[in-house]
Design a protein around this nucleic acid. Sequence first.
DNA 1: CTGGGGAGGGGGCCC
DNA 2: CGGGCCCCCTCCCCA
Length: 634
Amino acid sequence: MLDAMEVPSHARQLLLQLNTQRTKGFLCDVIIVVQNALFRAHKNILAASSAYLKALVVHDNLINLDHEMVSPGVFRLVLDFIYTGRLGEGEPGGEPSLGAVLAAASYLQVPDLVALCKKRLKRSGKYCHLRGGGYGPCGKLGRGLRTSTPVIQACYGGTPRPVPLDLPPTEPGVPLNTQCGELYASVGPRHPHGLCPPERACSPPCGLDLSKKSPAGPTAPLLPTDRLHPSEAREPSLPPRHDSPPGSAALLAAHGNAYQETSPGGDPPDHFRGSPPSAEPPGRAEGRELLYRWMKHEPLSSYLDECEADKEAEREDKGEGSPAPAPTRYASVESHDLEPDPSTSEETGSSEGPSPTDPLDRYCGHLAYEPESLGDNLYVCIPCGKGFPSSEQLNAHVEAHTEEELYHKAGAEPPGPFLDKSSPGLGDILRPYRCASCDKAYKDPATLRQHEKTHWLTRPYPCTICGKKFTQRGTMTRHMRSHLGLKPFACDACGMRFTRQYRLTEHMRIHSGEKPYECQVCGGKFAQQRNLISHMKMHTAGPDGKPKLELPDSLYAMARLPPDQLGLQPDKVAELLSHTHFLSDPKAMESLYPLAKFTAEHLGLSQDKAAEVLGQAPHLHLDAARTIDRYSPT
DNA sequence: CTGGGGAGGGGGCCC
DNA sequence: CGGGCCCCCTCCCCA
C-alpha cells in the first residue's frame, strides 16, 4: 500500500496553469458576454465556482450576463477571483467598488468571493446590516441591484434563479455604471426619432456583416441601433416561441430582440403596428458589434478606432484638450502577426499600453482573448509550420494542404474541366467541372471546389458559439445569425422579421394572397412550394404510407405542365428524364412501378430548370406521357 | 384525436 | 461572399 502523500502546491499549480490557459484562450469552452465585453473561460472552472454559472454553462457555450447586475469590469474581477482565489487590489477611481463586486458575487453565487468581500468591507468599516436580516455594504453596493432575473434566464425554464447569497433586494436604481459610455460613440447615424443624444457623435454603424439591411423599408431597422430615451424605450415584443434553441433564445433575449413577452394588455406588438423596434439598452449594440467582429474574426481595430474617433469627436465637441493617444496594441489585432502579444494577457497587469482603467482596454482587452488577435496559435501545422488558434482551423488548413498536395504529389491534374473523351455531350460543355467523388458537374472550378468540401470528413467552418461545423463559411455565418437573433428582413405589412430575404418573399405571399404553386392532381394552390410538396406526398402516399400508384397519373400531369408550372427540382427532373428511356422500351415496362416509386418521392417540387430540361426533351416527355397514359388508372 | 394546411426556421448546396 | 432555392423539421390551427 502506498502511503498517502500530497504535494501541497499541487492545487495552486493547477489553478495557475488553468489561469494561464484562460489568458491564452486555450481549451476555453465557454464565452461569457457581459454587455460589450467577451470573456472566455472553462466551463468546469465556472461550474465549480458558481452554482449560477454552473446552471448556465450546462446549457450553452455562450452565456450572457445581465450587465445591469454585473458590469464587465466587475465580472473581470470575479473571473480573476475564480481563477486565482485573489481579489484584485482596487485601484482608486478605476476599479469597481467592493460593494459592486459583492453584489455581483452574490448574484453569481460565488460564496468564497462573497465572504471575501464582506470581510474586506467589514475591515474597512463600510459593511453594515440591512433591513430584513441581510447584509449589504454601505455606499455603492445597492446601485443597480435589483431583483430582476438575468436576461439569460429567460432562455430555459430549468435555469435556477440566482439567489443572492445574503443581499436583500433593493430598489431598482440606476444600472451599474459600466463605463460603457466611453464606447457609445459608434452608434448608427439613423435616428429617425431624433433621439440620438446630441452629444454623441453618431458615426455610421460599423459593418455588421452578419446582418442585412431590410429591404422592407423604414419599419425595419436592422439592429435597433436607434436610440430611444430610456424612458421611451420599449422592448419589442413578439409572441414568444419556445422552440428556439437555448443559445438563440438567450441571445435574443439578451439583445433585446423580439422575443420578449407580449405586452400585458394583449395589444398587438409594436412592430405589428409597423412601428420601429425599440431601442436596446445603451451599450448593447456596441457589445454586439464587437461580438460580431470577434466571431467573424474581423479586425477589431477598425471598430475600436471608430470608437476612439468618436470619443475624440466628443471630446472636441466638448472643447476638451488633445485626446489621449489611441490604444496602439489593438493595431496588432488586424495584422496576422503570429507572435504572441504578452500585453493581451489581462492577468499580466502589463504596464504597457493603456492604463487598466482605460475603458477600451478594460472591455476590449477581453476581446483580445480571441485567439487570432492573441496570436497564440497553439495548433501548428507540422508540414508548413503555420500556427492556428484552434484545432478546427488547423484541421481545415490541413485538409486544404492534403488536397493541394494530393493533386501535386500524384502528378494529377487539379480539378479542372472534365471532358468525356468519348463523347462530350451538351452537359459536359455546359458543366465541364466534374466531381471525382460523385460525378456531379459544375460550371466553374470554384463551385466544384465548394462542392467537393461536402465530401470531406472534416467540415472546415465551425461555429464559434456552439461548435457545429459547416462546409461553407456562408452557411456558418448564416447559422451565427440565428444564434444572434438577427432578423434583418422585415415585412412591411405586419412587421414580422426574418433571417433571410427568401423567407420574407415567401411570407409576403400571405399578404398578397398569391398562391403560385398548384397541385396538378387536385388543383389545390399553395403559397409556399414546400407545402405543395408535402401536399403531393399526401397524394402519393396511401393510408398505410405506401405509394398509392397514383403516380403515373401525376407524372403524366407533370409532363403536360407548362414549364412555369412545373414543380421539380432540376437534378431530379434530369434524373427522372434520364430514366424515361424505360418508357419507350416495352421490355422495361415492368420497371415502371419502381420508377413510379422513385418519382413519388420527388414529385411536386419546383420549377425553372425542370421546365428547361423538359423543354429540351419534348420527345422524352411525349414518350413518357404516352406510355404512362397506358398505365394510368382510368 | 387525427389529418391536412399554413407557416417559421435551420441546413445543404449551387450560382 | 451573398443570394436564392430546395429539403427537412417542427409547431400551430382548424375541420
